[in-house]
């Protein structure tokens, strides 16, 4: 191997010669996919319809704003990510992207996404996106995450804003429907993340992040999961009686909430030794269910906004009359 090749090999090993994919990873594509989906639902179920190009632009810029806050989060949390098994391969701890690059990209994308969303749709949507980025990067990442076990409860608001931004992009307003979509994600976040924390506890412990499992123990966390799941139920069911809900949504929500409550009760009743014995199988199932819970609720909103919903309602009515 020549000297030049040796030098190149060292550089490629982690002094900031990142590929395009590393920058994509910096924007947390998995989180972005959730942002895209919920923002799209918020936009499509709204009573006012934008031109398809405007809708596409709105969703892209909301996603870009979500990505920007992800980059800012990775910039600030690089020390934590380095310690945690789940995040150790992220671009900053891995050394492929330098902290200054992450900060620069996060700030630049924040500005571009907010201004472009305001221009493409309206100032309210742009303002909400700016507030969301601020809330996630400053309130959650910099302030709450390392200071209180309630970090994800309050920080969860950042993840709950996208459908509200989508709704605002279409209507220029904040309605009860968008508030309920916000609350659905807001109340869903704690049980979702605490279930994850139950079987990833070592990671948070090592990183000294004050998750509820670390500060108050697993028994308290299990109780909190049940309480938040019960509090989530009326929010989810209540949305059925607004303009974005309907019989299909109500049926889906009833089934999902029943399963979610059963899962939360099982977690609450579990003893720690039993959980360790089966490697947190119940907690992992609950975590997987929580993903389906949110996805199917928003899918049901989407179905209710299509003409199929009326057809299905007519069919259900016909069935009830015929056989009832």
């Amino acid at each position: 191997m020549s000297d030049i090749q040796a030098d190149i090999a060292v550089q490629g090993g982690g002094t900031g010669e990142a590929g395009f994919g590393d920058y994509v990873q910096l924007l947390k594509p998995r989180v972005m996919s959730l942002v895209v989906f919920t923002a799209m639902v918020g936009l499509l179920v709204a009573p006012v319809h934008l031109h398809p190009v405007e809708s596409l632009a709105a969703i892209i810029f909301i996603a870009l704003g979500g990505g920007a806050s992800g980059a800012l989060n990775m910039w600030w949390d690089a020390d934590i990510d380095r310690v945690m098994r789940r995040t150790a391969k992220r671009p900053l701890p891995a050394g492929t992207i330098q902290p200054g690059e992450a900060l620069g990209l996060g700030l630049a994308l924040s500005g571009i996404s907010v201004v472009m969303l305001a221009l493409a749709t309206n100032v309210l949507a742009g303002g909400l996106l700016a507030f969301t980025i601020f809330f996630y990067a400053v309130v959650y990442t910099i302030w709450l995450k390392r200071s209180t076990p309630q970090n994800i409860v309050i920080g969860g608001a950042a993840g709950a804003f996208p459908p509200m931004i989508g709704w605002a992009a279409a209507t220029g307003q904040i309605g009860i429907e968008s508030v309920l979509m916000f609350l659905l994600i807001f109340m869903w976040t704690p049980p979702h993340f605490w279930a994850l924390a139950l079987f990833m506890n070592d990671d948070y412990d090592k990183a000294r992040v004050p998750m509820l499992t670390v500060t108050h123990g697993r028994r308290a966390t299990r109780a909190h999961i049940l309480v938040y799941t019960l509090a989530l139920m009326p929010v989810a069911l209540g949305a059925a009686f607004t303009t974005i809900g309907g019989p299909i949504y109500l049926a889906v929500s009833l089934v999902l909430n029943a399963l979610f409550v059963i899962g939360a009760v099982r977690i609450w009743r579990r003893r720690e030794d039993a959980a360790q014995a089966d490697k947190y199988a119940v907690e992992k199932r609950f975590f997987a269910l929580s993903l389906a819970y949110l996805f199917l609720h928003f899918m049901a909103f989407l179905v209710e906004a299509t003409p199929w919903a009326d057809r299905l309602a007519e069919l259900a009515h016909w069935g009830a009359v015929t056989w009832g």
Binding site: I8, G12, A18, G21
Partner: peptide, 20 residues
């Protein structure tokens, strides 16, 4: 000149093409 392509060149090209 350098004739052998290294991973570094691939990364740089992917970055340029992606940004474009």
């Amino acid at each position: 000149g350098l004739t052998q392509e290294h991973d570094l060149h691939r990364r740089r090209r992917s970055r340029n093409v992606g940004l474009g």
